[in-house]
Design a binder for these strands. Structure first.
Length: 325
DNA sequence: GCTCTATAAACGCTGCCTGT
DNA sequence: ACAGGCAGCGTTTATAGAGC
């Protein structure tokens, strides 16, 4: 069953059926009803391939995860994010391609997708400084939205407010009378870490607390190693802030094993943090995903899209309660 | 007859143009 | 304002024609 058949049965032109299908306003209610009746009777669905051919758009978008030795799609950050993205796309009848780039040249991989036109746009994850994907997509004038920011920001982005998120964490520790705080950061030099460090530093000077920074690359084992080496020299911190919940959890377990009681704040609000009672910063990942999907869809349809910073929220739990020294 | 190349038609749909 | 006609989207497949 195709549009031509519907037109014939409904006794209208093919163009009229197309107008009805696409909700054009220049069709009389009478004609619209007549056409819809036939469409419903035969359960007609427009051919997506033909529509794409004509519109030069597929209604599909892509999110590409990269494998860089770490975990991919095994964390709740990814699933919460994808849920937000899909929430928007499914509402609009659009489709999402989720892929993992593992081998070969990343630019060739993106070029291939751009040239073959299988998607209308990208949502970029793990943005780097001077990211080569950005350069390529700008050159090709291909629609995309970035999750996060970098040193250039010559693109539309949706980012979590890492600066205020980190600030809130330190502020909370300061409010429970911590004076000397250990901040265990993620990878040095990547945008997320830079932004959180800004928040930490702002809080440090505003709130008159001391914060020492160590880098553990978002790695649980490295977090423990750092604690071990500090303990050797004498541990005099009265609060710990970690750049992820997993890091915070491993720090918590390790110090508990040594019978050291100290307030700890994590980041991300993964389900584990609720389970173990970890105070943490919630980034509202689902909203970030939803907004990014909305923005890339606008761009693909030649509409404007504005960048957005989504506020974070501190979730207080028992890892920082009852510590009023 | 066979192989190779050039051209046309086909796929289903939508947007522009035209007519009432 | 409403509705019909038709080009054209990009690629594959069919057909015609040329050369051997």
């Amino acid at each position: 069953m195709k549009i031509k058949d519907i037109a014939k049965i409904a006794d209208v032109s093919v163009a009229t059926v197309s107008r009805v299908l696409n909700g054009a306003n220049n069709v009389s209610n009478e004609t619209k009803e007549k056409v819809l009746k036939v469409i419903n009777k035969y359960d007609y669905k427009p051919d997506k391939i033909a529509t794409s051919l004509r519109r030069k758009r597929t209604g599909m978008y892509a999110v590409i995860f990269s494998v860089k030795g770490g975990r991919v799609l095994e964390d709740t950050y990814s699933t919460k994010f994808l849920k937000g993205v899909l929430n928007f796309f499914s509402k609009k009848g659009l489709k999402l391609i989720v892929d993992i780039h593992e081998h070969g040249n990343i630019l060739e991989y993106y070029k291939d997708i751009i040239k073959s036109k299988i998607v209308d746009g990208f949502i970029l994850l793990d943005i780097r400084k001077n990211d080569e994907r950005v350069e390529l997509l700008n050159k090709e004038n291909f629609p995309y939205v970035v999750i996060g920011r970098n040193n250039e920001n010559n693109f539309v982005f949706v980012d979590s407010d890492n600066v205020s998120g980190a600030y809130m964490a330190i502020k909370h520790l300061s409010q429970i009378k911590c004076k000397k705080i250990l901040y265990i950061s993620g990878n040095k030099g990547i945008p997320v870490s830079d932004q959180r460090l800004v928040g930490v530093k702002n809080a440090e000077s505003d709130l008159k607390v001391q914060v020492d920074v160590q880098y553990a690359d978002f790695d649980e084992q490295k977090t423990v190693e750092i604690l071990k080496s500090i303990l050797k020299k004498g541990f005099d911190y009265d609060g710990i802030f970690c750049a992820s919940d997993l890091m915070a959890y491993s720090a918590m377990k390790f110090l508990q094993g040594l019978d050291i009681k100290i307030p700890i704040v994590g980041y991300d609000n993964i389900p584990l943090s609720e389970f173990v009672g970890l105070t943490t910063v919630d980034q509202n990942i689902a909203k970030i995903g939803y907004s990014a999907a909305q923005a890339v869809h606008s761009l693909a349809n030649n509409e404007d899209a504005v960048s957005l910073v989504v506020p974070s929220k501190l979730i207080k739990r028992k890892s920082t309660l009852n510590f009023n020294f």
